[in-house]
Design a protein around this nucleic acid. Structure first.
Lengths: 158, 158
DNA sequence: TTGATAATGAAAATCGTTTTCAATAAGGAG
DNA sequence: CTCCTTATTGAAAACGATTTTCATTATCAA
């Protein structure tokens, strides 16, 4: 198959070799799913999506891979309060640094990425201060806003 | 028992009457536990603590009460990533507005309440902007920092 | 091509949390 | 103070997301 040597070998391949990990079919499939969506997928969402192409891949492997990817820093794991974890690619073409607005009415999650200047300013100061005050090295942060989206606000008013 | 009329009747009593809720022994016990600690208690922690004084109070009731208190806004529910929810009184004598530093090494959680000026500034702008941009009414926010505490950093270096 | 071993899948186990349902108790009415 | 309505409770069972077990398979360095 000339010219196909690199099919299925995108930007993340090098990451695995480094850690002594193997780049397997299920792992590639899971990364593919994550890199193609901007939704906030649960393990089962990912499993179902992978299952369309690779019916033999089990849910267990999805969980294991997600754990590994999170450890490697390639994905983020979120808790939006509905009892199941959600996953997002932490880098790559599609993903920009962002946070989440969570509607407590309908559980809808809105990504937002504005106000990053203010945020950066705040974080820079906070992280520096915290590092000194508590001798704590900050690696990452989580910011989430809770409230009511337009629809739920109207529903409540009615 | 003269003089004991108000024992077990602290500041939160009024809150229940208003909502049509009953102020029961288990609820008081749970609130007492929460108001006496500055730790981040899980449902089971609270259950065990309540159990010392009221052995008949069940874990189910603890969960139900915590859910109610969270709904009423009297407590906050946190997820520090260890698979069990943690609870904190949201107001009262002991509690000031604060956030959490979570050590990903040993799972220790440090409260911090400094840098609130910067935070307030950031939040004010963010909330105003988000409200306008997404027609979203922000009710609350969650900020958590992840990293390594001094001990885990030293352990890692060794 | 081969071998060591990392990775996998199916099923069972785990474990925090929720539901069920009959029994109990809070607190307003009388 | 007593009675009555019904919110609340406790024990046990159910639930559901995630993890573990263990025998089998597949990756990839030599």
């Amino acid at each position: 198959m000339p010219g196909r040597r690199n099919v299925g070998s995108p930007w993340w391949h090098g990451r695995f070799r480094g850690g002594g990990y193997r780049l397997t079919v299920p792992r590639q499939a899971i990364l593919n799913v994550l890199s193609r969506t901007s939704r906030h997928l649960s393990a089962e969402d990912i499993y179902l999506e992978v299952h369309k192409v690779h019916p033999h891949v089990g849910l267990t492997t999805v969980y294991r891979t997600l754990e590994l990817l999170a450890e490697m820093g390639m994905i983020f794991k979120f808790d939006f309060g509905d009892g199941r974890a959600r996953y997002e690619l932490s880098e790559g073409p599609k993903s920009a640094h962002h946070h989440h607005l969570i509607c407590t009415g309908c559980r809808r999650v809105i990504d937002y990425s504005g106000f990053m200047d203010e945020e950066l300013e705040f974080l820079k100061r906070a992280e520096k201060g915290l590092a000194k005050k508590y001798d704590f090295e900050i690696k990452s942060h989580l910011i989430q806003f809770y409230g009511l989206c337009d629809k739920c606000r109207k529903k409540k008013a009615a």
